[in-house]
């Protein structure tokens, strides 16, 4: 069972990211997934989070307790939720938006300039999808095929192509980073 926490600010597509992962895992990877989101007055502009549990068996307890993976796309979201990340966890950040504290335990840090990549692709609104591609490459919680099936069903039809491009950008960046890591040239992993 893998527990995932997405954190950012309202409007970044944090909830949508949770829905895409959950749908990819439960409909196209044939796993079980439960997605929950933060509700409340903080939903616009303030700290916002989504939580997804992906499992081979039915998910009983529906909330994240000790996340295995945390994705942070804002400093506030990072500060609020980083303390709950498990000691062996993966921490994925948008490196232009989050300045992490020194790492604790065996947490591994992976950074991507998701928002900058999205701007280069023409629209910062797809930063979350760049991050999803990066997440898919680094965490291997969901398959790339499942993600590519899920995304077109959950974004406006005229933006499908752009979103898939954003996903590929993040995914390839993640693969490259992992390749460097395997060859012993720890790229940005653990950098801070």
């Amino acid at each position: 069972m893998i527990e995932i926490r997405f954190a950012g600010y309202g409007g970044q597509g944090i909830i949508r990211s949770g829905i895409i992962i959950g749908k990819a895992a439960s409909l196209y990877d044939d796993k079980f997934a439960t997605m929950n989101q933060s509700f409340g007055p903080e939903a616009r502009g303030g700290a916002c989070s989504a939580q997804v549990i992906v499992s081979d068996d039915r998910v009983l307890y529906p909330y994240v307790t000790v996340p295995n993976v945390m994705v942070a796309m804002s400093q506030e979201g990072y500060s609020k939720y980083e303390p709950e990340l498990g000691d062996e966890g993966l921490l994925l950040i948008d490196e232009d938006l989050v300045r992490p504290k020194p790492l604790r335990g065996n947490i591994k840090l992976y950074s991507v300039p998701a928002t900058r990549f999205a701007e280069e692709l023409g629209n910062r609104i797809i930063a979350n999808v760049v991050m999803l591609g990066f997440f898919t490459a680094i965490s291997e919680v969901v398959t790339v095929e499942a993600m590519k099936k899920a995304i077109p069903t959950l974004v406006p039809s005229r933006f499908v192509e752009l979103n898939l491009k954003a996903f590929d950008k993040g995914y390839e960046y993640g693969l490259e980073l992992r390749g460097k890591e395997k060859r012993g040239k720890a790229g940005t992993a653990g950098r801070c």
């Binding site: 949770g18 829905i19 959950g22 439960s26 409909l27 079980f32 997934a33 439960t34 997605m35 929950n36 989101q37 509700f39 998910v59 529906p62």
Partner: peptide, 9 residues
């Protein structure tokens, strides 16, 4: 609320 707002297959 938990069941109402939880998203699953």
């Amino acid at each position: 609320e938990c069941v109402g707002h939880m998203t699953e297959k």
